[in-house]
Simulated scan of single mutants.
Amino acid sequence: MTNSIHILLVEDEEILTTIIKETLEQRGFRFTIARNGVEGWEMFRNEKPDICVVDVMMPRKDGYSLVEDIRRVDEWTPVIFLTAKNQIPDVLKGLTVGGDDYMKKPFSMEELILRIHKLVRRSRTNLEEADSPQLHTSISIGKFHFKPQLLHLSFEKEIITLSQRESELLELLAQNKNRLLDRDAALLKLWGDSNPFTARSMDVYITRLRKCLNADPNIEIMNVRNKGYKLLDKGGIG
């Protein structure tokens, strides 16, 4: 339920912080506020929030460095980056350090609320299922074994930990293996919209997933121009 969601907001813009806090508190969210990455790290360790909403450019410690610290001790708590930057290298860096989503300023409060709900819902489901091994679903992708509830993609003895968004996208691709995954349908399901920024973000996730899967030459994520993607398993059927 909304009123049980505890947000750690790490943002140095006072006006934006006030707007986000007042708007979301009216919807029942609870808040912990930090003004920079150093405070954010202390608050994260002390408060154990359900989700972190983190600005990228901050004094003392930037958002990327903060999330790197968080991911060293916690792979489950979802993170949404807030940023004025929208270049692909910036998006890629945010995803590389462990961000689950990326929102460009200015943004809609309704969109922020939607994304918080989706990420927290998925995180709580994953945690519940992580405590119940019998509920773990294992999906075969060539020589890989993918456990979406655990965010784990394993190849032989190596385990790659995916972000929630990477896991969600790979699960969609796997569900449509050797068939077209419509680009707009995937954007709407995972991001709730299909604007150019989220489309570029998905392209970055696809690039990251390709790197994760390149250990098996029979697995390929093919780009179908202007339509979407296909996860091809050239060593199997279906």
Rank of each mutant, 00 (worst) to 15 (best):
T137G: 01
M57V: 06
D62P: 02
W191N: 14
G98M: 12
H117E: 13
D69R: 15
P217Q: 10
L9A: 04
H117G: 09
F197N: 05
N218A: 14
N36H: 06
M58H: 06
L187C: 08
G63P: 01
V38L: 11
R72I: 08
I206R: 00
P78M: 11
L95D: 04
P148C: 03
D74Y: 07
I5M: 10
R122S: 10
Y205N: 14
M109A: 03
K105M: 06
R183T: 07
I237E: 09
L16T: 07
A186G: 12
K48I: 09
K48M: 07
L119Y: 08
P148M: 12
G228T: 01
P78L: 06
S154H: 14
G238N: 14
E110I: 10
E220F: 07
L82Q: 08
P89T: 03
V53T: 05
E25P: 00
D216M: 14
S163N: 04
L153M: 10
W76M: 12
T17V: 02
I159M: 11
V56C: 01
D55S: 01
V53H: 06
R122D: 15
L188H: 08
F146E: 05
L181S: 15
R165Y: 10
T96K: 11
F155T: 10
V120K: 06
D101M: 00
R183Y: 04
D50T: 09
I116P: 13
C212R: 12
T207F: 02
M103K: 04
I33N: 04
D131G: 02
F107M: 07
L213S: 04
R183V: 00
P49M: 09
P106Y: 05
I237D: 13
R183N: 06
S167N: 00
N86V: 02
K211V: 08
K61S: 01
R124K: 13
T137N: 15
A130I: 00
L119W: 14
K104R: 10
D62S: 02
D182F: 00
L82M: 01
I88T: 14
S194H: 09
V97E: 05
L112C: 00
K234V: 00
D74E: 02
S201C: 08
L153H: 13
S163Y: 06
D50M: 05
I141Q: 12
M43V: 11
E168S: 15
T2D: 11
N218W: 04
H136Y: 08
I160S: 15
R183Q: 11
D55G: 05
K93G: 03
R71M: 03
N223C: 02
I80C: 09
N3E: 11
